[in-house]
Amino acid sequence: MTLTQQYPDPVDFTLPGVAPRDANAVVAVLQDRLNALGDLGLTLKHIHWNVVGPHFIAVHTMLDPQVAAARTMADETAERMAALGGVPLGTPGAIVDQRSWDDYSLRRADAIAHLGALDLVYRGLLDSYRQAIESTGALDAVTQDLLIGHTHDLEQFHWMVRAHLEDSGGQLATEGAHTETEGARHAGA
């Protein structure tokens, strides 16, 4: 989300030291992050329920803490929006209507295939987090700090996923993949 996009419920009041115009821009960025985190939590649970194969238990149990963290991050994001005078939209419809990405495409699949697809999910999520960090820096350092903390945790989870896809020489099985389907295919090859 760029700062030129307007948040649907303009901020009339905000925190001391934050101009309403800046709060509107920050709330728009945070709504996009809220949508991404809601989507991530649902996607991780979907994988948790649909993973099969010899690595089932490792992946199945690895994902629940990630789901819990995504929910906590979503709560922190929504609360920051409210503190800035925004109205967080946390409904499934808001996610679907406002997101710029497609639904997760894998169904029941081997654990390594799901991890290959999840690698691409995390790559896209982390790219958008870095953009959000950059766009909020001059507007609200507190929000930027929140986003940096979330990025730290998301990078940690991404590392855990990628560790399953990497060989001892550091070669990543999903190298060159641009879609979840390609990531799953590359990982399973």
Rank of each mutant, 00 (worst) to 15 (best):
D102T: 12
G90E: 06
Q144W: 07
H55M: 10
I133E: 15
M73F: 03
L34G: 07
A23C: 07
G17S: 09
Q31I: 05
E166G: 00
V87R: 09
D12S: 07
R107T: 07
H164P: 00
G85Y: 09
L30I: 04
I57V: 08
A177C: 07
K45A: 04
A109N: 14
A68M: 09
A19I: 02
M160C: 05
A23E: 02
L30T: 00
V161I: 15
T14G: 10
I47R: 00
D22M: 01
S105M: 11
L139K: 09
M81Q: 14
T136E: 06
P8Q: 15
T136G: 03
V29F: 06
F56D: 03
R108I: 13
D167A: 02
H158P: 00
V18W: 05
D39I: 05
S128F: 00
T2S: 15
A58E: 14
H164L: 01
W159I: 01
G183K: 00
A138L: 11
Q156T: 11
D119M: 05
R162V: 03
N50P: 03
L44W: 08
I133P: 02
H152Q: 07
L125N: 02
S105C: 13
R71Q: 13
D9I: 09
I148Y: 08
G90Y: 02
L89D: 13
A94K: 06
T136H: 06
